[in-house]
């Protein structure tokens, strides 16, 4: 399983890439493998204001549902429009083509709460 070092992670198994005040968010390789074949993705809409720790979307496999919790607060500036029509991308390319949303951070201090790749791998070992 792959956990790129340049990304940040959360306990809810999301990854975050930061570029200036824009955060790109997706689900980790571990999350996609736990869910199995992903069949449905529901994303927020551009313009929605997200609050850190609150649900902002849904990922479903054939027999499981998982809420996506926004790791950070901010306004949704872009969503991956391709994803709802090709949810399997989350299985095949979780860190590239399977990105989910981009938000403009409203509280950059929240970045301090995120995990680095090593701490995240420790966490999933405990699971």
């Amino acid at each position: 399983m792959d956990f790129p070092d340049e990304l940040k992670y959360t306990e809810e198994h999301e990854w975050i890439a930061i570029e200036a005040d824009i955060a790109t968010i997706g689900i980790s390789d571990f999350a996609q493998s736990q869910l199995g074949d992903i069949v449905f993705v529901e994303l927020p809409e551009v313009g929605d204001e997200l609050e850190a720790g609150k649900p902002c979307g849904v990922v479903e496999s054939v027999k499981a549902v998982s809420d996506i919790y926004s790791p950070l607060s901010g306004e949704v500036v872009e969503i991956n429009e391709e994803l709802p029509d090709a949810p399997e991308t989350l299985n095949t390319s979780p860190y590239e083509d399977g990105w989910m949303i981009k938000i403009r951070l409203s509280n950059p201090q929240e970045l301090d709460d995120l995990l680095d790749a090593d701490s995240y791998q420790e966490l999933i070992k405990e699971d």
Partner: peptide, 12 residues
């Protein structure tokens, strides 16, 4: 589309 149903989504 069983993820709509009680045995998976429970109270939701």
């Amino acid at each position: 589309l069983a993820t709509r149903e009680q045995h998976i989504r429970r109270e939701k």
